[in-house]
Design a protein around this nucleic acid. Sequence first.
DNA 1: ATTGTGATTGATTGATCAATCAAGCCCACC
DNA 2: GGTGGGCTTGATTGATCAATCAATCACAAT
Lengths: 237, 237
Amino acid sequence: MTPKSEKSETRERILEEAARLFHEQGYSATGISTILRRAGVNSGSLYHFFPGKEALLIGVLERHLALLEPFILLPAEGASADPIERVFALLEVYRRGLLVSGCTRGCPVGNLALELGDRKPRARALMNEYFAAWTGRVQGWLVAADDRLPAQLDRERLSRLVLAVMEGGVMQARAAGSVDPYDAAVAQLRSYFRLLASYARREPAEALRAAAGESFLEPVEAAEPAETADTSGWRYW
Amino acid sequence: MTPKSEKSETRERILEEAARLFHEQGYSATGISTILRRAGVNSGSLYHFFPGKEALLIGVLERHLALLEPFILLPAEGASADPIERVFALLEVYRRGLLVSGCTRGCPVGNLALELGDRKPRARALMNEYFAAWTGRVQGWLVAADDRLPAQLDRERLSRLVLAVMEGGVMQARAAGSVDPYDAAVAQLRSYFRLLASYARREPAEALRAAAGESFLEPVEAAEPAETADTSGWRYW
DNA sequence: ATTGTGATTGATTGATCAATCAAGCCCACC
DNA sequence: GGTGGGCTTGATTGATCAATCAATCACAAT
């Protein structure tokens, strides 16, 4: 056997349940014993794979980072070939996460980011990496949109805005127990994008003015996730 | 003495330390004993005022709600008479909170909102009330901006976007250990507002196009907090 | 068959947790 | 100066916490 296998089935089950519980109740509020019970594992097994609770947290975050591509980004790209539509397909992914969980689960990394702050430096570095990968991909789409957005537009800044809207929208949805605040924030972002697109289309002033006021939300139809990595047996939401 | 005084000096000290600790380390990670030590109080006193830890949480949230006006909203209004500048003065208040805490403290309610989710219904109702008061005030400013924003613009949706940008920006700043992501998101929001203002000014198409690309951030100068409530002895950040 | 190693078992540890409570203190009020 | 109630004291409770560890199991290699 390979030493300290990274692919142990028990290890995966522990990570999956820990991820779910950290997501639902937070890191501090989740007891090791609960994870053990839900995963059907004894404490010795857990401590065989993870030296302590913090190492388990690191493992969970590494798992989130590994799952970002197949479960979040690729489905968004599969939903549309249009780079701007991909942005809103991505936001639709999180909307689904809210809906299937009754507004109790949004972005799993966002929760931990606010709870842990800088008290676990290794964890913070991973969360930062996660956000960087997220905004980096969005930035790539915005660059790909090319002449459909104003040339001078700062794509990096806009990608940071998109992430902020997602995380802030999820937070409001959790507090409200409803997706409405999330939808409102996303709809307004959509309106902003339409406005930017109108510019790039070099429309006359009157058409631009009309676009500035609009704020309706066009639902994005779901597409089959475009899986490239082997994610069989992995659950995310 | 009035029975179960709401103004006991001890009670205030407990609430202040609990608020700080909940903000810095979260609700679950904060032990009662730590609060007692920092506040210089014995456990019996705490349980004299609060029947349990959850009641203390409610008290902390009620305190945040009471302090929203004098410590957050009024300073933003005092910074400028211009309703749109008030929006960005408000965002500047949170930026200051990030800076003075080394990016460890953002919005105190936002942290709790994500940590507690719907597991404490009474707490969630208060957090929702907090967000509603926040966005409600911003919405009021946006309405007051009147013809300086497009008439068809949905002011409520935009206020939800502003809150999302603040909360999401704070989250990214905490994860990055730097205000840069916060500044980026706010700068992009500023750009959006300039664009909307250009519309309302009915500028010709070329000027509008120029405004669409700009994304610089004008720092908002601080003004003295306009205090109307008695907040002597209350600390917030 | 024997040995080596990774994986599992599950009782147990000491620490820390939220919460309790009997006793005493302080002081306004009469 | 006595009385009563708001407030404080601080040791103590049982529960739960993360973590430990000696023993055992499963199984591949030889």
